[in-house]
Computed example of a mutant assay.
Amino acid sequence: MTLQYEQILVAIDGSKESEWAFKKSVGIATRNNATLNLVNIIDTRSYAAVEAYDRSIAERAQKFAEELLGEYKLKAEAKGVTKVNIIVDYGSPKTMISRDLAKRVTADLIICGATGLNAVERFLIGSVSENIVRSAKCDVLVIRTPQDED
């Protein structure tokens, strides 16, 4: 018996690594006839101080995330994925992806890109992908290489 994935959660942040993760997720979703949940977490810590000064920052971040995920949804559908959800939320990507959102969509696979942090940044804050691997209750696929277009 082979494992069949039904709910795939893909972390999208606009980086080239998350684009690679998306491309790989499309193939996996197609082979498994799975639902693709495209997720972007707007990290509230990164703009909390500035937002007090300029409220429109949150609105711009939300609009950017929705447009980015909307483009990816169209690409997935063009490749034959019939069930695609878009989730934009606020908080800490490190904890929300593997705990809250994975539970919300009953994810059986989380796909994310390896982050481009340097050694000092990794030591100080740790990477999102590292945290997902440690805390997820389901399979995790961390993408480190580009996927060739079929």
Results as ranks from 00 to 15, higher is better:
Met1Phe: 14
Met1Val: 13
Thr2Ala: 15
Thr2Asp: 15
Thr2Gly: 14
Leu3Cys: 15
Leu3Arg: 15
Gln4Leu: 13
Gln4Arg: 14
Glu6Leu: 09
Glu6Arg: 15
Gln7Leu: 12
Leu9Lys: 07
Val10Ser: 01
Ala11Glu: 00
Ile12Gln: 01
Ile12Trp: 00
Gly14Pro: 00
Gly14Thr: 07
Ser15Val: 05
Ser18Tyr: 03
Ser18Asp: 05
Glu19Val: 06
Trp20Ala: 03
Trp20Cys: 00
Ala21Met: 03
Ala21Cys: 10
Phe22Asn: 02
Lys23Asn: 14
Ser25Ala: 15
Ser25Leu: 06
Ser25Val: 03
Val26Met: 13
Val26Trp: 09
Gly27Ile: 00
Ile28Ser: 11
Ile28Ala: 12
Ala29Phe: 08
Ala29Gln: 09
Ala29Ser: 14
Thr30Ala: 10
Arg31Asn: 09
Arg31Leu: 06
Ala34Ile: 13
Ala34Gly: 14
Leu36Tyr: 03
Asn37Phe: 09
Asn37Leu: 08
Asn37Ser: 12
Leu38Thr: 11
Val39Pro: 06
Thr44Glu: 03
Arg45His: 07
Ser46Arg: 14
Tyr47Glu: 02
Ala49Trp: 01
Ala49Val: 01
Glu51Arg: 07
Tyr53Thr: 07
Tyr53His: 11
Tyr53Gly: 07
Arg55Gly: 15
Ser56Gly: 08
Ile57Thr: 08
Ile57Tyr: 05
Ala58Tyr: 14
Arg60Cys: 04
Arg60Asn: 08
Ala61Arg: 13
Lys63Asp: 14
Phe64Glu: 08
Phe64Pro: 02
Glu66Thr: 14
Leu69Phe: 07
Leu69Ser: 03
Gly70Met: 10
Gly70Tyr: 12
Lys73Ser: 10
Glu77Ala: 11
Val81Arg: 06
Val81Gln: 05
Thr82Glu: 09
Lys83Ile: 11
Asn85His: 10
Ile86Pro: 06
Ile87Phe: 02
Ile87Asp: 01
Val88Tyr: 06
Val88Met: 08
Val88Leu: 07
Asp89Thr: 15
Asp89Phe: 13
Ser92Glu: 05
Ser92Gln: 11
Ser92Gly: 04
Ser92Asn: 13
Lys94Glu: 04
Ile97Asp: 04
Ile97Leu: 04
Ser98Glu: 04
Leu101Asn: 08
Ala102Gln: 00
Ala102Tyr: 02
Lys103Ile: 15
Ala107Met: 07
Leu109Gly: 04
Ile111Phe: 09
Ile111Gln: 03
Cys112Met: 12
Gly113Ser: 10
Gly113Asp: 08
Ala114Asn: 07
Ala114Ser: 14
Asn118Val: 00
Val120Lys: 09
Val120Cys: 01
Val120Met: 08
Val120Ala: 11
Leu124Asp: 01
Leu124Ala: 05
Gly126Met: 02
Gly126Arg: 05
Ser127Val: 10
Ser127Gly: 11
Val128Ile: 06
Ser129His: 06
Glu130Phe: 04
Asn131Arg: 13
Asn131Gln: 12
Ile132Val: 12
Val133Leu: 01
Arg134Lys: 11
Arg134Cys: 01
Ser135Glu: 10
Ala136Leu: 09
Lys137Glu: 15
Lys137Ile: 10
Asp139Val: 08
Val140Ser: 01
Val140Gly: 02
Val142Cys: 06
Val142Arg: 10
Ile143Gly: 02
Gln147Asp: 08
Asp148Gln: 14
Glu149Cys: 06
Asp150Tyr: 13
